[in-house]
Design a protein around this nucleic acid. Structure first.
Length: 161
DNA sequence: GCCAACGTTGGC
DNA sequence: GCCAACGTTGGC
């Protein structure tokens, strides 16, 4: 039952849902929904499991980068939004019998005191091969154990401005 | 606002 | 199944 421990990077636009929004949820736990890309879906549905580590990455914003740490705290399950005609994530081609899209719940672990920018990550040789740099658009991407260990140990850096 | 990367769509 | 057109992502 205990599968392999995995690590992930989840991207979010902080204007939509930020690490602070996650921390503010009851119990610091919330649903990661609205994934509408097949590769991201496959990662989530087939590989994600409770206990996996998650780097929360803010994208398309003034200060992009890693903003916090979370943990997967549910098994993957069909994203309810795909069945809701009023949701922007509604998918008329999906059905409860044959759900197309999946969600997991994640639990807030900690919010970093500053954002770790992609430039700073890229400057570290052991991080240069992150999926983030090879396939920047993928919104649910795997992180190696080595990459995870480096990043969670990184000291916060004052945000220059 | 620009532009590169890349996923999706649709005609054939 | 190919591939051009198009739309979206996302850093800068």
């Amino acid at each position: 039952m205990a599968g392999q421990q995995r690590y992930w990077l989840f991207k979010t636009e902080p204007a939509e849902f930020s690490i602070a929004d996650l921390a503010a949820q009851p119990g610091g736990s919330g649903r990661w929904d609205g994934i509408r890309n097949y590769q991201a879906r496959n990662n989530l549905r087939d590989l994600a499991a409770a206990g996996d580590g998650v780097l929360i990455y803010h994208s398309s914003c003034k200060q992009p980068g890693i903003a916090g740490i979370a943990e997967v705290c549910s098994a993957p399950y069909p994203d309810p939004a795909q069945f809701d005609p009023d949701s922007p994530y509604f998918d008329p081609k999906s059905s409860p019998d044959q759900p197309r899209w999946y969600s997991v719940d994640i639990c807030h672990t900690r919010t970093l005191p500053g954002i770790i920018s992609p430039a700073r990550l890229k400057a570290i040789p052991d991080l240069a091969d992150m999926v983030l740099f090879r396939q920047g658009r993928l919104s649910i991407q795997p992180v190696s154990e080595k990459e995870w260990n480096i990043i969670v140990a990184m000291e916060p850096q004052r945000t220059e401005s």
